[in-house]
Amino acid sequence: MIFLRAVLFSIPRHLVIILALTAIQNFDFHPLPLWTAIAVTYFFQWVITWFFAEWTFWHRLPRFKEMLMVFCIFLVMGTLIEVSYVSFLIRVDWWKIFTSVLQWDRLYLVATYFLAVSIAAFHVRRRHVKAKLPEGLESC
């Protein structure tokens, strides 16, 4: 079921990221320097990915393998949605857009997603473990 949830949740996740990026583009950061806009962009992507990862893991105790699987699904589905959407908008060949997004600076984004998914998995795991502890041991 976690596979199905991850696949399905990756769709609203990426659509919400597109909306957030559109909103940031409309926002005037002046007189703040450019790097603040980039930082806000990464922060939004982190928060949205973390939220949807938490939602994906919500009912279960996530294992390391499951965390990796969710991260990979988010990454692959996100790339597919982004490339398909841009291809739909500007009517350019899908493969051309796909090759154009494969750049080294995208690794920062991959790291952001990994961080968000792993923190979400850790947080959900801790919540489940805490809930199972006998009374009086929650603070341990």
């Binding site: 769709i11 609203p12 659509l15 919400v16 909306l19 939602w55």
Partner: peptide
């Protein structure tokens, strides 16, 4: 699509 995706989730 966003409506479907959020509703589906």
């Amino acid at each position: 699509l966003l409506f479907w995706a959020i509703g589906g989730a």
